[in-house]
Design a protein around this nucleic acid. Structure first.
Lengths: 359, 359
DNA sequence: CCTGTTTCTGCAACGGTTTTCATCGGCTAC
DNA sequence: GTAGCCGATGAAAACCGTTGCAGAAACAGG
């Protein structure tokens, strides 16, 4: 029941602000050269740390530049050097009108990427729409806006992704490892992760372990594969009625968990394909009067920052967000330099916390 | 108890990828001009939709450009036009080593900003560090990387923010309205919001309403002010022991909520300064055997996307993330064009859901 | 003193667009 | 017939750095 009530519509209180003085890059290198009594070349070299310029001259120039509050014009530099020190990061971000994902995983990853990039003096361009989406006419690599792209999800259109990366190799993709793919992928070993999680639930004595997640996403499909593998490797048949793979995104997780309960299928554990799903499942179960982990053990996937402070804290398969982000940046920058680079499968680690019950 | 166990360290499986063919902006406008038998000027005009060029010529050029897979070089254009159609968005993003905020509010807002900007053909540069932070030598406006900046939090150093915006007026800040500030602020009326939330709790019969949130953040301080106002306006004295304002960020919210319980102070409702805090409070209370909303009513602030799908769904003061994001973009672009622009206080709305109890 | 090196600096040629100003042909109006 | 205008195009000047190459100055060795 989402009763809404509106209040205090003190109509958009406002205080007028003065017109801005137009502040832009005004000083040019020429002026600094004049002030220092040298040529522009020397100024350029001094500022870029070239060893060709005398120590004294450099210091003098630096001091003058600083006092004139001078900064090189990035666009002129990019034009000349044919590179931008900018990386595009493509994430399917939250959308308000239509339902769309808004998983904290992405925010955590963004933080790591921002750090890794700025450490290497790169800037980060953030985008929601793939260059192959319709309505997008060009891509940031071709038009010289970025030197490379990090794509944070393989998404639905694997074919488009594949042909794009065929054309533009300066791309690293986060996701699952699919045999056919030729682009660089970074991600955990989802099959191993799924197996690890499931086997842990077996080990602590759970008999009816359910799976919850949408296999339309390649990574999730692999995790489900790992789930199945855990059973077959242990000589147990998979009970298909325990696999709840109705398509849904994180926002609908709660509804899905409710559907699970209403299905009447009995279970004493759930391997959730993400931490967000796990948290939703937990609150839903509790609303239904079930106790986690007493009645049902829960394992998630991702190890997002809040996983450890949720109540109960989440047992989860770590996506090694930190390592993953750093690795993506490393590989991409190397590839941009033209080096040969390897697709990377991050090792998988289970973080055991409260939500699956003490062992 | 965070027992960790490592498994399946199949050491970084790897498949070597071929060296990338260097794909960059190769075709230039000159070549297109040659092919079309016209001058570069005409090509430029044709592509930018200038009315000065003949319809037939334009179509011919467009066709040629398309077939040559040509795209204008952004850097050359930016250099010439002295503007980039890029906006920097500054957000204090999640940090792994040290605790830091990782509030879904920011991800939701990023989604809205991305939409609003791309609708106007602007790109978005994402940053974590303020230009006035030490170690940062320049800012994106001065060096010509962006036309303006959206700052997503006033942060701790109000003085630095103030002097930066004094120098560079092409800035819009999300946050609370502080009398002394001269920069453009967009945000909800935090005082009204705090009052609204608190009064709602009074109205449904709660007697001991606690406040939970860190007033070091200007917005939170204003919400607390609203909380106090609700009492004084209704002729009730504020019980200071009900105000839990120990400094903490979202991750520590659970710990803070536990401290609240241990303090022994009795309360039957909490006004939480954000939805993340509210969710933490709810799980903590439940772990302690209390029922929400039966024993304690909870109201949050923000109305993030998952607020409605949490269990119980959150009663919360809407930050109008959608309106807010769009407004920030509108105002910033207007200001960049040199128009006079007004600081905006968004009207406040309470979304009543389960977590405060049926009215 | 002459030659050869080394060290530093300047000249000038880019880099790829946009935009102002001039040009030019054709058309209208008188 | 001529002045004036209009619509379309081109030439060239920015925009602001970087960098290859040449040259100068200083210095050492013979």
């Amino acid at each position: 029941m989402t009763l809404q009530f509106l209040a205090m519509r003190r109509d958009m209180l406002s205080m007028s602000k003065t017109l801005p003085r137009p502040v832009t890059a005004e000083t040019t290198m020429f002026e600094i050269a004049q002030l220092a009594g040298v040529s522009e070349s020397t100024v350029s070299r001094a500022l870029s740390g070239s060893p060709l310029v005398n120590e004294n001259t450099r210091n003098r120039i630096l001091k003058i530049a600083r006092s004139a509050n001078y900064t090189v014009n990035i666009n002129a530099r990019n034009l000349r050097q044919k590179r931008t020190r900018t990386i595009e990061v493509l994430i399917p971000l939250a959308e308000y009108g239509r339902q769309h994902m808004s998983d904290p995983f992405y925010l955590d990853m963004l933080g790591v990427l921002a750090d890794a990039l700025s450490e290497r003096h790169y800037d980060m361009l953030l985008t929601k729409r793939a260059p192959w989406a319709k309505g997008v006419e060009t891509n940031s690599i071709q038009c010289g806006r970025a030197d490379g792209i990090i794509i944070m999800s393989q998404g639905q259109d694997l074919e488009a992704l594949r042909s794009f990366t065929d054309l533009y190799p300066q791309v690293v993709v986060w996701g699952g490892h699919l045999r056919e793919d030729d682009y660089i992928v970074v991600g955990t070993d989802n099959v191993a992760g799924g197996k690890l999680a499931t086997e842990h639930l077996m080990k602590i004595g759970r008999k009816r372990i359910a799976f919850l997640g949408d296999p339309a996403e390649p990574e999730i499909a692999l995790r489900q594969e790992g789930y199945r593998k855990a059973f077959s490797d242990n000589g147990i048949a998979v009970d298909e009625s325990l696999i709840f793979s109705a398509p849904f995104d994180a926002r609908e997780a709660r509804a899905s968990a409710e559907k699970m309960l209403q299905s009447g299928v009995k279970f004493d554990a759930i391997f959730c394909a993400s931490d967000v799903i796990a948290m939703s499942a937990i609150t839903t179960l509790r609303n239904a009067g079930l106790e986690v982990p007493r009645d049902v053990s829960i394992v998630g996937y991702d190890d997002i920052l809040i996983a450890s402070s949720f109540g109960p804290s989440l047992t989860t398969v770590s996506q090694r967000i930190q390592d993953g982000g750093k690795t993506m940046v490393d590989l991409l920058l190397q590839r941009i330099e033209g080096k040969s680079v390897d697709t990377t499968l991050l090792p998988v680690e289970l973080i055991v916390r409260e939500s699956c019950g003490a062992q």
